[in-house]
Nucleic acid binder design. Structure first.
Lengths: 189, 189
DNA sequence: CGTGCACTTGATTGAAGTCAAGCGCTGTGG
DNA sequence: CCACAGCGCTTGACTTCAATCAAGTGCACG
């Protein structure tokens, strides 16, 4: 049971069977339909999700009302509205299922409890934070150094999943270009 | 001795006097002149710096050869080429003193050693990572949602230090606008 | 079977970059 | 202590990349 999750955890840290049992006791399973929203702006109650099957998207709305996608989380990845999770302030971000999705989740309180009672759990969280930081920084650098064409090429090279599995408008909002521009890029290359 | 650093640490975590002693034994003090470069691209030997007095800047070069500033670290902040520190790959970033600066630094090896022997040290690192992540994400969002004028206004409101203490060309490279555009913005507002 | 949403394609616009020229401070060496 | 070289900053003219606006096509789903 929870094999994907335990594999993931054991890949990152060494953890005793009893500790793994304890950790598991706080995770719950959950199925959501395509397009369902898990976290909306203004909410404080926080969870961390682990994607078993399907895909989550984290995005926020700009003043103009257009969506800006911050992250896609596929199978075997943790995801949450991380800024809100860290700061404990209300989220500015949505978390939404893009496909029918199977999730494991843990509440923020339980997650913090695990940080206290399982020393290695801190290390797991550290890895998640490091990953999130590196991803984000690469993204930031790509906005600064690359134009629309190059950003699209890079995404195609580094994360073809996104381009294949996600609808165009979401890919565009992830690259921070308009849907029209993405359409033109695709037809050219 | 090291009062600034110990104050900073005690603000983030609870740590025994002997542990603090141990931690301190790995930090060294260092003075650098204005414009001196501490880490250059291609280097692997990593340190974490704590700014006692002065200011550090982390930046990288774009293909065109222009500088893109990722972060300014003022008094009582930790700073390093964090992506390289995390991934252990060679840095793409420079770390440079912008003013005559007084630093405490610790090597990556020693820092990791502290993570092992002082349980609370993990928490300190966590706080640093969380801070870096939140800062970076806010920056990312500002590039996506705000135009040049609004980014400048936001920086002026949230971090006037940067605008006051840093030369124009660095402020511009931090906002990811050209020096000319920043000049025009300043003259208007 | 039809309504609406995703996507394409074309025409126009606009924000900010680039190029270019000139001013003024700073600091360095004679 | 002065002079001049060079860098930082400003201002103007022009260019460009990608956004917006607009219209039309086709597919998916109720």
């Amino acid at each position: 049971m929870h094999k994907q999750l335990s594999d993931y955890i054991r890949e990152k840290i060494t953890i005793s069977d009893p500790d793994m049992e304890t950790a598991f006791s706080f995770f719950k399973i959950m199925e959501v339909k395509k397009n369902e929203v898990l976290i909306s702006p203004g909410e404080t109650s926080q969870r961390i999700y682990f994607v078993g099957k399907g895909c989550l998207r984290i995005f926020f709305l700009t003043e103009g009302g257009t969506e800006a996608t911050r992250h896609f989380a596929f199978e075997n990845q943790f995801a949450t509205a991380l800024v809100s999770f860290i700061t404990n302030e209300t989220s500015k971000e949505f978390v939404q299922a893009i496909e029918d999705t199977e999730l494991y989740y843990i509440s923020q309180a339980d997650f913090y409890y695990l940080l206290k009672i399982i020393p290695q759990w801190e290390k797991l969280y550290r890895h998640y934070l490091e990953y999130a930081y590196v991803t984000n920084t690469n993204r930031l650098m790509s906005f600064i150094t690359l134009d629309a064409t190059e950003r699209y090429r890079q995404l195609l090279a580094q994360n073809p999943n996104v381009v294949m599995r996600m609808p165009n408008k979401m890919v565009a909002s992830y690259l921070n270009i308009s849907q029209e521009t993405l359409s033109r890029l695709k037809s050219k290359a």
